[in-house]
Nucleic acid binder design. Structure first.
Lengths: 177, 177
DNA sequence: TGATGCATGTAATCCGTTACATGATTCA
DNA sequence: TGAATCATGTAACGGATTACATGCATCA
């Protein structure tokens, strides 16, 4: 799956500018499992436009640069539907955190604790972003499904880390008393 | 984190050839959160060797091409330790499956069911690989930690999908009767 | 006899990120 | 006054994958 399909997918829910698509990706319900930068989004949109899969409309704004609002065309919807029928690639999960934890016993405990706390924080951030998205509404069957999945997975990870942190904590309390 | 550090890390546990490192990555306990191909592993090993972070030894084999067994040097261990102290990048998770599920209501139900079953299968594969690794032994504190994490997360995902499949199943039974 | 596993390596290519370039507005 | 937000875009660069090249052994 490439960024073109991604843009097509997002636009199929709501017309948007490149800037807004980026925001949706990093703050919306996609943030957990998708990533993209301006450097890939803008060229993708131009390309889609050239192929007739989306249309553009310039929206004037006072004191702001014009906004280029993209909408998906019928051909675009067809392309999306076709793209969705190919068997999806296996999930890719990359974690430097886990790699680092593999060498737990070589590392100072304070560093390990910090790393776990940072990871826990990341997971909680993802979780609360999901809760927000749910609250903001416009949920459909699909978004419910993916948020349920994300919630299940993130919560499980967070729980695990919390229990591991609890095993580490006593040493701090001892030092504080 | 780059592949050089990855190789250094794996070699710090056990000397190995490029081929074996690849196997370890795709079948060992790393498979869940790391990825690398020959095209990146072999050049990385040559480079590490040129920098004196690893040494090579050619192992003759009957009826097989020689094996180049790499071992980490003291300088290599130091480089690894230094590399582990930088703050790890945030986890990256990419899922075409979840993206596709976002459009659940546009897709034929049979397709959705297949996609979920495939995903469930992938998760179970990852899980059983972890169980195998645990059984094979040579676990340390670090590997216990990451396998615990992986197990928690994968199990949660699998449970969620199972419950969703159960909601879908009735229609099949109806058709069968 | 044909697929799979063992074993190493390179070159072309792709996909995307980072950094750069520009500029007004609003909020602290 | 300086940072953050809104807004678009390009060029250079990087990092890794894919495909290619080679070849013997084993198992079904």
């Amino acid at each position: 799956m490439n960024i073109r399909t991604l843009c097509l997918g997002i636009l199929s829910f709501q017309e948007a500018s490149g800037y807004e698509i980026k925001k949706e990706i990093e703050e919306g319900m996609f943030s957990h499992f998708i990533d993209a930068s301006y450097g890939s989004i803008y060229p993708a949109l131009s390309q889609l436009n050239a192929e007739g899969l989306v249309t553009v409309r310039a929206e004037e704004q006072t004191g702001r640069p014009d906004k280029k609002v993209y909408s998906v065309t019928e051909a675009g919807r067809a392309a999306l539907a076709k793209g969705l029928l190919v068997v999806p690639a296996r999930d890719k999960y990359k974690s430097e955190f886990l790699f680092e934890m593999l060498f737990k016993n070589m590392l100072p405990e304070a560093h390990v604790r910090l790393a776990i706390e940072k990871q826990l924080n990341d997971l909680r951030e993802d979780l609360s972003r999901m809760v927000e998205c749910r609250a903001e509404g416009q949920t459909n069957e699909g978004s419910e499904f993916i948020m349920g999945y994300g919630e299940a997975v993130l919560t499980a990870g967070a729980k695990y880390l919390e229990s591991k942190l609890a095993e580490l904590q006593p040493k701090i309390k001892l030092a504080a008393e």
